[in-house]
Design a protein around this nucleic acid. Structure first.
Lengths: 261, 261
DNA sequence: CTTGCCCACTCGTCTATACGAGTATGCAGG
DNA sequence: CCTGCATACTCGTATAGACGAGTGGGCAAG
């Protein structure tokens, strides 16, 4: 192992920058320069205490800065590691095009298989419930809705949690209310039921996850979520579905094509 | 002032949940329930030390949890406050439609004025430079580019930092290379120069900001950024501009319309 | 060889204390 | 009246020490 001083330098006692920030800066720079690579272990707290001649809390404080930035993560009993960037899932704006609804399997499964990863869907729940204020507004003042919840995993890691809401007069008693709505998913069913889809509207926000989201998506700290709300409109201009999706931001790139007209 | 016990409850010594997490949980719940409102001051560290009978570091640890979640922010000498949500800027997917390029002022200015806020653009920089690997790839293997940097502010608060990159053979010596490219912005100039725009492609990521971004966008901790990279293509299929934008995530909602075809 | 325990090393949590620095308020002196 | 300072309260930074708990390697007993 190369000695610490060769990688980490000294503190500047004259600087007005807090010691723990100076240490964080040095570690961050070392990571950026590739002195510590993805998944690699950083020096232990004790080693840094030794190297810089500071107290342990100060070193921990530095680590907490980097953890908050999503650069590193600590593993109890093992050490602090440079956080590896997971493979990203790219979502193209044509992912709901009619031609993709032909085959039997869901878009998620097909795409993940093609990418060579192991897809999985769990936490399936389909039930009728009271619409929240927001959902009610988006669907055009409905009181109760059919809610379809599911969680998507890639190679065992949860990456996305989604809930679809549909007005009861559309969904009740149809295959849409079944756990497995059949080939092409609920959009295919909606079209069969005469709700010809016209366009989608997607709203995108990014924020830090709630504790619940941290749990269900098993998020490392310092990882934001992308919150996407999609509303599907039929050719009559009626909102026929709202899909509320929360994604681990480190696992996604969204991509959209916009006409220049 | 209502007494602390009436809002905050006790610790559960039998729980295996860490004390500082229990305190954070109680504060978070109180905030969620509106017991502490936006912009309101939380109890001081000393008061919480008193109320829970724990040491100050433990209380600070709780605060640091909430700060990381973007729920609260501390102000030196004043206290810890529930972080107010800034007004959000909605970006619609038709914001680059040709009809919006008619008027003289930039889209940002027009829109902000309409919303009643005071818009501002600064840190203008226009220069030729070497293209990064990524930019070069997106523009189709160009070596050097014209870079146009600017920062957008709303009511004094920086909300977005953007850099446009254009191939030199298109931009050099044209109004595009001027600090102020004139009415309708660089897209209008591109069309005048015969590069008729066909479509845009936008890639969206969310992540925690780098220290530099924290500074230029004056971000509170616990606020992620949205990173948007837009490529503009002309009718020949050539990429004529790449715009790299970093936005304060708490100030934006992106909205896209997708056809269902 | 395998099992099981011990120990060393790691981070996690908590206490107690000290001093520094930003903020606001009130009071004394001009 | 108003200026300016003292003061009390706020959070920021840092030290030193203690114990707990997860991990992994080595060693001893079977």
């Amino acid at each position: 192992m190369t000695s610490l001083p060769s990688v980490l330098g000294d503190l500047d006692p004259t600087s007005d920058r807090a010691v723990f920030r100076q240490i964080a800066d040095q570690l961050r720079e070392a990571i950026d320069r590739g002195r510590f690579k993805e998944g690699e272990k950083l020096p232990s707290e004790a080693e840094l205490v030794e190297h810089y001649g500071v107290s342990r809390m100060t070193v921990r404080n530095s680590f907490s800065v980097l953890t908050g930035e999503g650069l590193v993560h600590a593993e109890h009993g093992k050490g602090v590691f440079v956080r590896p960037r997971p493979p990203v899932r790219r979502l193209a704006s044509d992912r709901f095009a009619r031609r993709h609804r032909e085959q039997g399997k869901s878009a998620f499964i097909v795409e993940a298989d093609a990418a060579g990863s192991h897809p999985q869907v769990d936490s399936l729940e389909v039930k009728e419930e009271k619409a929240s204020q927001d959902i009610s507004t988006r669907l055009g003042s409905v009181r109760r809705v059919l809610a379809r919840r599911r969680r998507y995993l890639l190679d065992g890691k949860p990456v996305e949690f989604a809930t679809s809401y549909l007005p009861l007069d559309i969904a009740r008693g149809t295959p849409i209310a079944e756990p497995n709505p059949g080939p092409g998913g609920i959009y295919a069913r909606l079209e069969e039921l005469g709700h010809h889809l016209d366009h989608f509207e997607e709203e995108i926000r990014a924020r830090m996850p709630s504790p619940t989201e941290v749990k269900t998506l098993r998020l490392a700290s310092g990882v934001p979520v992308i919150h996407l709300v999609r509303t599907a409109y039929d050719t009559e201009g009626r909102a026929v579905e709202v899909c509320d999706t929360v994604m681990a931001a480190d696992a996604y790139v969204l991509s959209y094509q916009l006409p220049a007209t």
